[in-house]
Amino acid sequence: MTAERRNTAALRFVLPAAAAFVLAYVLQTVLDDYVMSIVNFVGINIILAVSLNITNGMTGLFSLGHPGFMAIGGYVTAILTLPAARKAMFLPDLPAWLAGLQAPFVPALVVGGLCAAATALVIGLPVLRLKGHYLAVATMGFLIIVQVLITNWDSVTRGPLGLNGLADLTTVWQVLPWVLLTLYVSWKVKFSSLGRTMIAVREDELAAQCLGVNLFFTRVLSLALGAFFAGVAGGLWAHLVTAITPSSFSLIMAFNIVVMVVVGGSGSITGSLLAAVLFTVLTEAFRPLEEHYGLYGIGEILMALVLILILIYRPGGMLGTREPRFLVDDDG
């Protein structure tokens, strides 16, 4: 790659990133807090969809465990940022080293993400020997195990009551950099040897193996990478909603994120991003309709309908595996 081309590649990222910051500033000044929180949800959903796209989309591991990783990241972040006084009140049985600890938000998010990624490495060892439907069921089992653990581990999680009154630390200035980082990392991965390998494993694992690809290593890495960003998203989510309970991270949520990836196009970063934006905005748009006419659940029904139609008429999703031409180097 020549220096010149490297510059244009950098520009392709720097310009949209700068534009996003300007946009965030404008939105922040124009919109009220409620609409701004929706903007933040859009950002969190982008992180979720783009990171699941690494696992489900590029490597083809049908994982329903994403909310499980969010829950781990969310709880870890929440416990780390909770002031010592509140910890004494909520979680009197916390180990001493943790009870006295209060971390700033960003390091807490990073630790939350790392905990989620470490969990992915551990569960990956047994679970990633499975394929297809079996893997989906196993990751669903993982999600349920996480929920059960959180519900019963009173001394650390406060059980079914959850942790409420968390500080509202999640602003657009926290969300946006993480969105950009997620996009940047997954873009870099996709157009590297690792990303090609992931797609190769998805498309034909026997052939990939014949070429010297270590299937297991590739799969574990892609699960852990997705899990890291899911953990961070969980932390952002917890401090946006300012409360976190074991039922916050449900199978429905797993379904919703999978829908975003499938609708966007499995493997397409741009597709996941667009689908996450569309999905979040539409769900919010349906809310007044639901309340006004008492048609609760109409949003979900329409979403499911959209999914079915996409699977029938455009099974590759909006963008397939590719990215829009103007964003990609000519030699791919």
């Binding site: 390998t197 498309e203 014949c210």
Partner: peptide, 26 residues
């Protein structure tokens, strides 16, 4: 030792060049 499997096993959604580059993975 390089093995070219039965039924070709090309990676359909990667480009021709990307397929060849996966071959040089190691």
């Amino acid at each position: 030792i390089s093995h070219c499997p039965e039924g070709r096993g090309i990676f359909a959604s990667l480009t021709v060049r990307e397929n060849l580059l996966v071959g040089a993975y190691l």
